[in-house]
Amino acid sequence: MKRMSDAIFRDSAVTPQDLTEAIRAVLADCGCLAADAAAPADDDDLYGLGLTSQGSVHLMLALEDRFGIEFPERLLRRRTFSSVAAIREAVAGLIDGTAAA
């Protein structure tokens, strides 16, 4: 799977839209939403779309692999994975270092 962090560090022009699409792709790949769930909008409640606590574990591992990041303990919260927007905020912070533990 393609890693994105290097590209982002090199190219500050990576937009939130790129990140959002990449997160949606990870969500689709990891199969942690209900099988019949439509692609989630930014603020859709992912738990309402079938995300479980164990599912969020697998989602987190997939995100860590995809973006070459590691979620610190303080981000291991239900809220962090509650929507595409929440994930984007966490991932963006980790990629640019502002959310480091």
């Binding site: 606590s53 164990q54 574990v57 987190m60 591992l61 590691e70 979620f71 610190p72 303990e73 291991l76």
Partner: peptide, 12 residues
């Protein structure tokens, strides 16, 4: 088994 899943990502 539940803990085993959580421990995959828990870093405390």
């Amino acid at each position: 088994a539940n803990s085993a899943g959580l421990l995959l990502v828990d870093k405390e």
